[in-house]
């Protein structure tokens, strides 16, 4: 097996590991935090804050 064959296998392996890492972290996060917390982001926070300071 030459270098490039090895690189092909390494690329498959690293891709699988990265995908697995994201998947595991995703499931762990979703089971640790409530949906209300995870989806609590609201648009325009900084702008609203600046307006309230002005007021």
């Amino acid at each position: 097996m030459n270098l490039w064959n090895f690189m092909e296998y390494a690329a498959w392996g690293v891709s699988a590991l990265l995908g697995l890492h994201m998947l595991v972290d995703w499931l762990k996060t979703d089971s640790t935090y409530s949906e209300e917390v995870l989806t609590s982001s609201r648009e325009g926070e900084l702008e609203a804050l600046a307006e309230e300071h002005k007021g």
Binding site: E36, V37, S40, S41, G44, E45, L46, E52
Partner: peptide, 24 residues
């Protein structure tokens, strides 16, 4: 301004509208 607390452990400090976790 009462709902803004930059030392809060549950709010991100910039979230007057109830954002607990927002983009950084």
């Amino acid at each position: 301004m009462t709902d803004i607390d930059i030392t809060s452990k549950t709010m991100d400090g910039m979230g007057p509208h109830g954002t607990k976790v927002g983009l950084l």
